[in-house]
Each structure stands twice: as structure tokens, then as C-alpha cells.
Computed example of a mutant assay.
Amino acid sequence: MHSRNGTAADLRIYGGALDAPGGGFLAAVVVMQVRGIQGEVTVVMRDESLSGGYRFKDAAAALRFAMDVGMKAARQSAQPVFS
């Protein structure tokens, strides 16, 4: 497994490239709210088989995709909601 992490506002993004059975890498991401809350850390998004389980040829591509998805989720969760 290969991993990378980043921060966006009060969210922490953990991206991973998991070895896929039969070769290649699966992209995975977890986005957690780590600041501005009391008590437990809140999982905002978790997907261990992004893109329907598509197998990337190399770990770098899977990590890049996972982090892009995580950053997008972080931006969307930070958007104010209007009714």
C-alpha cells in the first residue's frame, strides 16, 4: 500500500493506492473532520474502491486520483448550505 495525506481547512484527507488482486492498484480515500469538533473525529467520506474498482497501472496515478476525489469532497463539505 502507498499512501499520502493532506489538509483542507479542518479536514484531513488520507489517500491510498492499494495493491489489487491480479495486478495494478485501487484508489482509496478517507476524509475526516479533525478540528472544530468536540469528541470523536467525524468521517466525512470513505471509499475503499474509488471509480468502481478501476485498476490503475501504477500507484502514483491511483494516489493522484484518490487525493483529487478527497480534495473535491473536502471543498464540497466546506460549502455553506442554503435552503
Rank of each mutant, 00 (worst) to 15 (best):
V41H: 10
F65H: 13
G15W: 01
E40D: 14
G22W: 05
A73S: 08
E48W: 13
Y54S: 08
I37Y: 10
L26T: 00
R12Q: 13
G53Q: 02
Y14E: 15
K57W: 04
I13R: 00
T7C: 05
A59C: 08
A60L: 11
M71G: 08
D19L: 11
L50T: 03
Q33A: 09
D10A: 15
M32P: 03
A61C: 11
F82H: 14
Y14I: 15
L26M: 04
Q38A: 14
A27L: 01
S51C: 12
K57T: 05
M71V: 14
K72A: 14
A27W: 00
D58M: 07
G70S: 05
G16A: 14
M71R: 15
R75M: 05
V41S: 09
A59K: 09
T7G: 07
A27G: 02
E48K: 08
L63Q: 06
A73P: 08
R46W: 07
G16W: 13
F56E: 03
A62F: 07
M32I: 02
G52M: 05
D10F: 05
A20S: 13
F65C: 07
V34E: 15
R75E: 12
G52T: 01
T7V: 12
N5V: 04
A61G: 15
V69H: 02
F25D: 03
V81Y: 07
G6A: 13
F56W: 11
D58V: 11
K72G: 07
N5K: 13
L50N: 00
G53L: 06
I37H: 14
I37E: 10
A78C: 05
A9I: 03
Y14K: 13
A9W: 14
